[in-house]
């Protein structure tokens, strides 16, 4: 029951994108079409979970014993950058199909604050390993859900008569605001 609450909380109530504002650059950048959005969502889930495991281990088995917690930011961002590079090389060699669908999003993920954000939140909430895994997966899934839903809305928006000044990012942000309002409705579910 607690875990269920954790999952629902991470996906809906504290949605990474719409309630914690993490990962907005790719949100506006690659959400114009449904299939690119889905690709980005999957890539983020994949990298965020791997990065969470890596950074969690690094934090509790390297930084804390050595009393180097103040280097957290530096170490985490380097680990994520290295991880993204490795994943890219690995995918290129092993799975052409997967590389073609996820590959182009990978470099973008290095500077995606959702990934680093989730890694930092895992530590901030002092989660143990299993809880961290569930939390990271559902947070990233929340990101994927939001970006896919949003891409659907934006495809429709292309057909709507938007005032010229509001076209592009402006209307996208307002739309995100309305979606965020909808997600706010979940707040009552998990106090």
């Amino acid at each position: 029951m607690d875990l269920l609450l954790l999952v629902i909380g991470a996906i809906f109530v504290n949605n990474v994108l719409l309630a914690q504002y993490l990962g907005n650059c790719p949100f506006c950048g690659v959400s114009k079409k449904l299939d690119t959005a889905a690709g980005m969502g999957l890539a983020v889930i994949f990298v965020a979970v791997l990065a969470s495991v890596l950074t969690w281990v690094a934090h509790y088995f390297v930084l804390v014993p050595l009393d180097l917690e103040y280097l957290q930011t530096l170490v985490f961002v380097l680990l994520i950058a290295a991880l993204v590079q490795l994943v890219e090389i690995f995918l290129k060699k092993k799975s052409q199909a997967l590389y073609r669908s996820l590959g182009i999003y990978l470099p973008l993920i290095t500077t995606n604050c959702a990934v680093l954000g989730i890694a930092l939140l895992n530590i901030k909430h002092e989660l143990d390993f299993a809880t961290m895994l569930i939390y990271a997966t559902s947070s990233a899934a929340g990101f994927a859900l939001a970006i896919v839903l949003f891409a659907g809305v934006r495809e429709r928006l292309l057909l709507s008569p938007v005032p010229p000044a509001m076209r592009g990012t402006a209307i996208a942000l307002v739309t995100a605001g309305v979606m965020s309002l909808a997600f706010l409705g979940f707040a009552g579910m998990v106090e």
């Binding site: 504002y21 942000l173 307002v174 605001g177 309305v178 965020s180």
Partner: peptide
């Protein structure tokens, strides 16, 4: 001051 207000 909530999230929707920020986007809007």
């Amino acid at each position: 001051v909530k999230a929707p207000g920020a986007f809007l």
